[in-house]
Simulated assay, not measured.
Amino acid sequence: MKELKAKVYQTAIDQLKQKEKLLAEERKNIIESILEEEKNSAGDKYETSREMITQDLNSIEKQINQCKFDLEEIYRLNTIKETPPTVQEGALVKLGNDWFLLAVSIGQIAVDGSKVFLLSKNSPLGELLVGKKKKDQVNFRGKMQMIEELF
C-alpha cells in the first residue's frame, strides 16, 4: 500500500504542475491582451476593458500562487515516509470504501482505477479524522464509518 501512497503523491504533483503550466499560459495570454488593448485605446471603453483584463490577471496570479503553495506542501508531506500511529497531515486513509489523503484541498484524483480525495486537515472531514487510529469510527455522510487503512 505504500506504493499506492507514492502514486497518489506523484499524481497530485503531476496535476498541480500541469495546472501551474496552464495558468502560466493563461497569464501570458492576458498580458498580451493588455498590450494589445494599449495599442487600440479608445477612451472610457478602453478603461473598462483594461480594468476587466487587470482583474482577470489578478485572479490568475492568485491561482498561480495557490498552486505553487499546494505544490510545495505536497512535496513537504511526501517526505514523510513512516506510517503514522494516528491520522495526521500527510496520511493516506481508507474510510469505508473511499481513500483520502490529508494534504491540500485539490479535490479528487484517479490512481490505478481508485478515486482518492485530497483534502486539508482543516476541512470538516479532515478535522474528524485527525488523531484517530485504524479501526476507529467517525460519523461521515450521516453514518458511522470505520478507518479501514492508514498509511
Rank of each mutant, 00 (worst) to 15 (best):
L150M: 10
L57N: 00
K132S: 02
W99H: 05
L128E: 04
N97R: 15
E47N: 12
A91L: 05
P85A: 03
L35S: 11
K7W: 01
M146K: 15
D14C: 08
N139K: 15
T79K: 13
S41G: 07
K2E: 15
P84V: 02
E25I: 15
S120W: 00
E73P: 10
T48G: 11
V8T: 00
L129W: 00
E26I: 11
K121S: 09
S59E: 10
V111H: 08
V116N: 03
V111D: 10
N40E: 11
D44Y: 05
A12W: 01
T48F: 13
A110I: 13
G90V: 03
T54G: 10
E51L: 14
K2N: 15
L101E: 03
K134I: 14
E3S: 11
Y75H: 13
R50D: 07
P84A: 04
L57S: 00
I64E: 03
M52L: 15
M1V: 11
M146D: 11
L23H: 05
E3Q: 15
L23V: 10
D44N: 03
E73N: 10
E127S: 04
K134L: 14
S41H: 13
E20Y: 10
L119W: 02
D70Y: 10
E20V: 06
N97A: 09
Q15S: 10
D112T: 08
A103K: 03
A42I: 07
L128A: 07
Q145N: 08
A42P: 12
I31F: 06
G131T: 01
K2Q: 13
Q88H: 06
Q55V: 08
F151V: 08
F140D: 03
L125C: 02
N122E: 12
Q55C: 08
N29K: 13
N78D: 11
Q145E: 10
G113Q: 05
P124E: 07
K132N: 00
D44L: 14
P124F: 13
K17N: 11
V111W: 07
K17C: 07
V111T: 05
K133D: 08
N139H: 12
N97D: 15
L35I: 13
L128I: 08
D136K: 10
F140V: 06
N65C: 12
M146T: 15
E3I: 06
E82H: 14
L35N: 13
Q108Y: 08
F117R: 06
L16Y: 01
E47I: 13
I31A: 07
G90N: 02
L129S: 00
V130H: 02
Q18T: 11
T83V: 12
L57I: 04
Q88T: 09
K81Y: 11
F100H: 06
A110G: 12
E36F: 14
I64V: 12
Q137L: 13
V138M: 04
A24R: 09
D70Q: 08
E73M: 09
P85H: 03
L35E: 14
I106D: 03
N97T: 12
V116H: 04
G131D: 00
Q63A: 06
V104M: 01
F100V: 02
I80D: 07
K5L: 01
I74S: 02
I53F: 07
D98E: 14
Q63M: 07
Q137D: 14
V93S: 03
